[in-house]
Simulated scan of single mutants.
Amino acid sequence: MQPLQSELRVIETAEALASTLGGDPNHTVAAAALDTQGRIHSAVNVHHFTGGPCAELVVLGVAAAANAGPLVAMAAAGDRSRGLIPPCGRCRQVMLDLHPDLLVAVPSDVGPQMQPIAKLLPDTYFFPDSDAERVLRFNRRYYEAVAEGTKTSSVRWEELIPSGPAIFYFEDDDRPALKGEVLAVNRYRLDELTPERLRLSDGDTVERYIRGLRQHYPAMPDDARVDVVDFEVR
């Protein structure tokens, strides 16, 4: 997916820091990460023959030292004008375990793209004791409705959302994230959706809702199974 403005700032921060490297072979990659408060944290790798950490892992520590909480976007860039680079396998596993709702910037033929960390490491092992804080993302136009409790459900495709406490993060929004809880996640085929299951108000239709859903998920197939997520603000 195309990067949002906040995610472009993460990419730009990583690339700007990487442009200052090159004279020291022990530090060759820069990384930047965005937290749910809108803060960007940055760091560089520590190359060493014993297995010094990648920049992505160093920035996780930097963010933790700043009490950042869950991270929502990450980018890494190489020195000597190498530009955006994807994370290695070890970094992907750590990101998935500690920040399972992270979007990671990767290069492509059409420019930077944001990929969910779960899609960068499919069919993987999950570390059961990581106790990661979860994030439920929203378009910023829903902030008031979610904050006021008039919007209490959302439909998602391939987002792997669990029940339990979560931070409600509104993309490209300067207002503070909200704390809440995912109460239930129920999966249906598109042709099983009903006004009751979608919590539709009077006058709205399933067909119109699905058309809107396809604008958000253009790759969603006709036989897709989607999750109806019920939530509440604490």
Rank of each mutant, 00 (worst) to 15 (best):
F231P: 03
A63V: 04
G149M: 10
V155D: 08
P176A: 12
R187W: 00
E192D: 12
M114S: 09
T20Q: 15
H41D: 01
G212W: 07
E15H: 11
R234V: 11
R211Q: 13
A219G: 12
D223M: 07
H216K: 12
V10Q: 05
R211T: 10
K151P: 10
P122G: 10
D174K: 13
E207H: 12
V135C: 04
G51M: 08
L71C: 04
P165G: 08
R39I: 00
S6W: 14
D223A: 11
S19G: 15
R39P: 00
P162V: 06
L160T: 03
V185N: 02
F127Q: 12
S6K: 07
W157M: 04
D97N: 15
S6Y: 06
T50S: 15
I167V: 13
D131G: 08
S108P: 07
S153Y: 05
P176D: 13
S163P: 05
H41Q: 02
D131E: 14
R80Y: 02
G51L: 09
P221R: 09
D191A: 09
T150S: 15
T13C: 10
S81K: 11
Y125C: 06
L4W: 12
N45S: 10
M95Q: 09
R137S: 15
P195R: 08
R199W: 05
Q215V: 13
D204V: 00
D24H: 08
T36H: 07
L4N: 10
Y142Q: 03
L136I: 05
F126N: 06
P162N: 10
L84V: 03
V62M: 02
N45D: 15
P25F: 01
A55K: 00
A224S: 06
A14P: 02
D202I: 01
A77C: 13
A75P: 03
M114P: 11
A32G: 08
Q113M: 12
P86D: 08
D191R: 13
R134S: 06
T13P: 01
E7V: 05
I85F: 03
P87T: 08
E15R: 13
